[in-house]
Amino acid sequence: MVGGGKAGKSLAMDLAAAGQRVAMVERGMIGGTCINVACIPTKTLVNSARLLALARRAAQFGIDLPGTPAVDIDLLRARKEDVVGTMVAGQRKSFLASGMDLAIGEAHFVVPRTVEVTDDAGTRRTLSGTNVVVNTGMAPFVPDIPGLRAAQPLTSTSILALKSLPRSIIILGGGYIGCEFASMLSIMGVQVTVVQRRGQLLPREDADMSASVAGTLAADGATLVLGAEAAAVSRAGGLVVRVDEFLRTAADNVWAAGDVAGTPQFTHASWNDYRILKANIAGGSWSTKDRLIPYCVFTTPELGRVGLSETEALHGHESSEVIAVIQMAMLGDVPYQQLRDAVITHPTMAEGLQLLLSDAFLEP
């Protein structure tokens, strides 16, 4: 296992606990990106920001708090590091308890299915396996904007190690991560300016959803600069490993999962990759094709989504054929449960009705 992200570590522990010989190479982030520099630390800070916002409204709940609630950056950082540290320690304990060989160092392929691992002391060892899984994740990318690198900009990783809150900050990019940090920092009292290349924040979302998030950020004090083409380049950096729908690479018995495989950059998507890998390494044929991945933007309030946006749905293909199915059901007084549970030809647009009519989509 080259890299111990959500998919890799889960698979490594499973296989090792089942008695297989498993080695996992990790460069340093025990538990992966999520625990160390993404989901866990950022959501810990988001929760602190929400408590701060609530404390400022204490009087509305009949509570008189002395002074003005404010951020203590040292306490904030200590809490974040305690949460992360506790989880990292738990992960290391679980890794070792599974029986895996945990190798801390950097891996390089030297021949097919064989890597050389170099630790911080320069000691090298060689590991080979019948199967190899690459789960190295991705790193933040600094766009090639004149003068930007010289200014030593913060990234979504380095901002988590700040020793003090800045008086002001410019966030290049109004995507999911940018909006989360804008929301959090605005609540904490930082003067935030979000510069977004396109004409709306969260460009994958419907315009009304984007406008709602923009309104919330503005209400918290953030300044939004939209349509600033040159200053808002934002993309993930690093090598993407090409895989098929079964997470196989072009090399025999070499697999990839998580961010590095082009999987949507959510921990729960990587967890699904683990399940697919576990099945397929054992001879199965689980696929990533057409899987439905929900996600949430942890602004305050949050934005969650699964499936097509309204805009995407309005541009859907063969909608005229789908509406005819509904029409026939209505003319025949067919209950929606019967349509939901029918065996409908795959792959067709009409079979999407079964998901649409499921309990998860129907309003109470």
Rank of each mutant, 00 (worst) to 15 (best):
G3H: 07
K9N: 14
K9V: 14
S10R: 15
L11C: 04
L15E: 14
A16Y: 09
A18G: 12
G19Q: 09
Q20D: 15
M24L: 14
G28S: 13
G28I: 09
G28T: 12
I30Y: 02
I30L: 10
G31L: 02
G32E: 01
K43S: 00
T44A: 04
S48G: 07
A49K: 03
L51Y: 07
L51M: 14
L51R: 09
L52K: 06
A53R: 04
R56I: 02
A59L: 08
Q60F: 04
F61N: 07
I63M: 08
P66I: 04
V71T: 11
D72G: 05
R77A: 11
K80D: 05
E81Q: 13
D82R: 15
D82H: 14
D82T: 12
V84M: 11
M87F: 07
V88T: 13
V88M: 12
Q91R: 07
S98Q: 13
L102F: 06
L102P: 00
G105V: 05
E106Y: 10
A107R: 01
A107W: 04
H108E: 15
V110M: 14
P112D: 15
V115G: 02
V115F: 04
A121Q: 14
S128E: 03
S128F: 02
T130C: 04
V132M: 00
V134P: 04
N135W: 03
N135C: 01
G137W: 01
G137N: 00
A139R: 15
F141C: 13
P143H: 06
I145L: 15
G147L: 11
L148M: 14
R149E: 12
L154K: 10
I159W: 08
A161E: 15
G174K: 01
C179L: 13
S183Q: 02
L185N: 05
S186E: 06
I187Q: 00
Q196A: 13
Q196Y: 10
G199L: 03
G199T: 08
L201I: 01
L201M: 03
E205R: 01
S210F: 05
A211T: 02
A214L: 00
A214I: 04
A218T: 14
A228S: 10
A230K: 15
A230N: 12
V233L: 14
S234C: 13
S234P: 06
L239P: 09
V240L: 12
V240W: 09
V243C: 05
R248P: 02
T249I: 09
V254Q: 03
D259I: 04
A261Q: 05
G262C: 05
W271K: 11
W271S: 12
W271H: 12
K278D: 15
K278T: 08
A279S: 15
A282S: 15
G283H: 07
G283D: 04
T288Y: 03
T288C: 11
T288P: 00
D290W: 07
D290G: 09
C296W: 02
V297T: 03
V297N: 01
T300N: 10
T300G: 00
P301D: 01
V306A: 03
E310G: 03
E312W: 04
H315K: 09
H317N: 14
E318R: 15
S320Q: 13
E321V: 13
A329D: 03
A329T: 02
D333F: 11
V334K: 06
P335L: 02
Q337P: 07
Q337H: 11
Q338W: 11
A342V: 02
T348L: 07
M349F: 08
A350N: 11
L353Q: 03
Q354C: 08
